[in-house]
Design a protein around this nucleic acid. Structure first.
Length: 572
DNA sequence: GCCGTTTTCGGCCCGACTGTTTTCAGTCG
C-alpha cells in the first residue's frame, strides 16, 4: 500500500506551494486530496492500475498526472524542482508554531535561514528582529515556537493524553466549583485518534477569565502560551500542550461541534449548511440573522437534517453522506463488550496469577475471558511449553468451579514461527477453548505468508496485533493487509484490535477495511497487569473510528454465540 | 487545483487573536 506515501508527498507539495505564496485554494486542494488518499481503504496502486484515479474525490487532471508519475517513476519532477528553490529544512521550519510560510520565506530571502540552527542564530543575534513586520513580540513568539518544537515536537499517544485530560478536568472542576457547568474534552482526544497534537478541553461558564486564570496556574504548567477571556493555552511538563476554551451555555453545543472537528468534517458540514441557507460557527447555527440553535451539539446535526454523528466518525470519510441518509452504522460501545479474550498471567510474562488476574477481569463486569499466555518460542516472555500449558489448563478448570457468574476460557497466544507453522501442534491447540496467533520474531521473514498460513489452521480464532506496530517506536512488519483481510474473510478468522495504547493494532483504517469485507474484529487489552484492563476503551474507540458495529465484534457475543462462531465448531 | 440539478468560470467554511498596522496581514484551529 503506497497510500500513505502518496498522501505524504502531496502534503509536502502543499507546504512547498504555500511557501512559494501560491493561491490558498490550490494549496487546500493538495491537502484535501492528500487526506482523502490517506484515508482510502482501497490500495491506490490498484486504483491506478485500473485507471480509476479520477474516481477519487478531489483528484482532478493535474493531480492524477502527479500521482501517475509518482507510482510509475517513484518521483514527481515538479516536487524535485520545488525542493531546489527552498530552504534545506523547509518542512521542519514550517512546523514551528507562529512561524508560518510568509515568515519562513522572509527569513530565507533576507537572512538565508535554511535550517533550525540558522533560525536559532538569527533569533539570538537580533537580525530576525530587523526584518520588516518583525517586532519584538513576534520574534519572541517564534522563539517560543522553536523551543516548544524541541520539547513537544512529536504527537502524543491517546493513552498518555487521556489521563492528562482527566486530571485537568477534575482540577478545574474542583477549583472553579459552581462557576463552570459542562466540561469535556474536544478535538482529536474526543475523536479518539490514536495520537493527538494537543489536548483541547471545553468548559461552559459565564466566568471565562477566572476559569482561564485557574487553568493557567495549574500545577505542572511550565509555559503559558496565551491567556484571555475565552481561551487559555499552556504547556505541561515542558511536553504537552493543553488548550482550554471557555464558552457561554447558549454556545456550548456549537463550540463542542466546532472544536471537536475534524477540520475536514467541519468544512464539509458548513458547505452543506451554506447550500441550505444556514451558517455555522462556534457560537451557534443561524438561519439568516437568526440564531436557531447551539446550546446542544445535537441541534446542529438535527437542523441540517442528518443524524448526530459520533465524534469518532468525524473525519470526512463518508460519515456526513451516511448521516444525511440516516444510514450511519450503530457503532460498538464499551457497554457491548462482554469479554476480554487476550490476557496474560504469571504463567508467562503477566504480573498476576491466573486467579488474581481473573478476579480483576471479572470486576470489569465481563461475563467471560480467555487467558492467552505466550508459547514456548517466545523465550523472552517466559513462553509456556506443552507441559506448563497443560498445567495452566488444569488450574483454570479448577478456578472455574468457583464461579457461577463468570467463565475463564483456556487459551494461548501461540507464536507464528518464521516458517509459518505454529508453536503448538493441533493436538495441543485442540485442548484449548480459544487461540490467538501472532508474530513476535523475524519480522522481515515473509510476515504475509506466515499470517495467511496461521489463518488456515482451524483452531486459530484470532490474529493478534496483525501488523506488529508500536506507535511510538516502530512501524511493524507491514504484512499485505489486503491479502490478510481477504484470507480472514475466507477462513472466518477474526483480526484483533489490540487496545494497548502503543499498539492500537489494527489501525482505524484497517478496521474499516476489515468490516467492509465482513471480517470479525476482536477487541482485547492484551493485559499483563490489572492497569491495562481499562484500555479496552481505547480499543473500542479505535474500532468505532473504523466504523465497527456491535455485530462485527466477537467480544460483544455471548459465550454460546462465540462458541458457535468458532471455526472448529463448523467442522463435522 | 477542483468542481458543477443555478455555473466550464468563478466560486471554494468561518472566525479569533496577535502584532504591527494607519486599514490589515499572518497564523492558527
Amino acid at each position: 500500500m503506497k497510500n500513505q506515501q502518496v498522501a505524504e508527498i502531496l502534503e509536502k507539495m502543499a507546504d512547498l506551494l504555500e511557501f512559494k505564496g501560491e493561491m490558498p485554494f490550490k494549496i487546500a486542494a493538495y491537502r484535501k486530496a492528500s487526506r482523502t488518499i490517506n484515508d482510502l481503504t482501497e490500495d491506490i496502486e490498484k486504483i491506478w492500475q485500473e485507471g480509476r484515479l479520477a474516481e477519487i474525490p478531489g483528484v482532478g487532471k493535474s493531480l492524477q498526472g502527479k500521482i501517475d508519475q509518482f507510482l510509475a517513476e517513484g518521483k514527481i519532477r515538479q516536487l524535485d524542482e520545488l525542493l531546489e528553490q527552498v530552504p534545506r529544512d523547509i518542512f521542519e521550519l514550517l512546523s514551528i508554531q507562529n512561524f508560518g510560510p510568509k515568515s519562513v520565506a522572509l527569513a530565507y530571502k533576507k537572512l538565508g535561514v535554511e535550517t533550525l540552527d540558522d533560525l536559532e542564530k538569527v533569533l539570538d543575534d537580533g537580525s530576525l528582529a530587523t526584518l520588516p513586520g518583525m517586532g519584538a513580540k513576534k520574534v519572541e513568539n517564534i522563539r517560543k515556537g522553536l523551543e516548544l518544537r524541541k520539547t513537544a515536537g512529536s504527537r502524543i499517544s491517546i493513552g498518555i493524553a487521556l489521563p492528562i485530560v482527566e486530571k485537568v478536568i477534575s482540577y478545574i472542576k474542583e477549583k472553579a466549583g459552581s462557576k463552570i457547568g459542562r466540561i469535556s474534552p474536544a478535538g482529536s482526544v474526543r475523536r479518539s485518534r490514536e495520537t493527538v497534537h494537543d489536548i483541547d478541553i471545553l468548559a461552559e461558564t459565564d466566568h471565562g477569565g477566572e476559569v482561564i486564570e485557574i487553568f493557567t496556574h495549574m500545577p505542572r504548567v511550565t509555559q503559558v502560551l496565551g491567556a484571555g477571556d475565552t481561551k487559555g493555552s499552556v504547556v505541561l511538563d515542558d511536553r504537552f500542550q493543553v488548550d482550554l476554551r471557555a464558552v457561554k451555555s447558549e454556545s456550548y453545543g456549537a463550540a463542542q461541534q466546532y472544536f471537536t472537528g475534524s477540520k475536514d468534517h467541519n468544512v464539509h458540514l458548513r458547505e452543506i449548511a451554506k447550500k441550505n441557507g444556514y451558517k455555522i460557527n462556534e457560537y451557534g447555527i443561524y438561519k439568516g440573522e437568526d440564531k436557531i440553535g447551539g446550546e446542544d451539539e445535537k441541534d446542529i446535526y438535527r437542523l441540517l437534517k442528518m443524524s448526530w454523528i459520533p465524534p469518532e466518525l468525524r473525519e470526512n470519510r463518508g460519515e456526513i453522506e451516511a448521516a444525511l441518509e440516516n444510514a450511519l452504522p450503530e457503532l460498538v460501545t464499551v457497554q457491548d463488550i462482554k469479554s476480554d479474550l487476550h490476557i496474560h498471567s504469571t504463567f508467562s510474562d503477566g504480573q498476576l496469577t491466573v486467579e488474581e488476574m481473573a478476579e480483576q477481569v471479572r470486576s470489569m463486569g465481563y461475563s467471560f475471558m480467555a487467558f492467552c499466555d505466550h508459547s514456548k518460542y517466545a523465550v523472552y516472555a517466559n513462553g509456556l511449553d506443552e507441559k506448563r500449558l497443560l498445567q495452566e489448563i488444569l488450574e483454570i478448570r479448577q478456578l472455574n468451579e468457583k464461579y457461577d457468574d463468570f467463565v475463564v476460557l483456556t487459551g494461548s497466544e501461540v507464536d507464528i514461527l518464521p516458517d509459518g507453522s505454529l508453536d503448538f501442534s493441533d493436538e495441543i491447540l485442540a485442548q484449548l477453548d480459544f487461540v490467538v496467533a501472532s508474530i513476535h520474531s523475524a519480522f522481515k521473514t515473509d510476515p504475509t505468508m506466515r499470517t495467511l498460513a496461521a489463518m488456515e489452521n482451524k483452531y486459530v480464532d484470532v490474529i493478534a496485533h496483525p501488523t506488529g506496530r508500536l506507535i511510538s517506536r516502530r512501524e511493524g512488519f507491514s504484512p499485505d493487509m489486503d491479502k490478510v483481510i481477504e484470507k480472514a474473510a475466507q477462513t472466518g478468522t477474526a483480526l484483533e484490535v489490540n487496545s494497548y495504547w502503543d499498539r492500537l493494532d489494527l489501525s482505524d483504517i484497517h478496521v474499516k477495511k476489515a468490516v467492509e469485507h465482513g471480517v470479525k474484529i476482536s477487541i482485547n487489552t492484551d493485559s499483563h497487569n490489572p492497569h491495562h484492563l481499562s484500555m479496552m476503551a481505547l480499543g473500542v474507540g479505535n474500532a468505532r473510528r473504523g466504523w465497527a458495529k456491535k455485530s462485527d465484534v466477537i467480544n460483544a457475543m455471548t459465550l454460546d454465540e462465540l462458541r458457535a462462531w468458532q471455526k472448529r465448531s463448523n467442522e463435522k
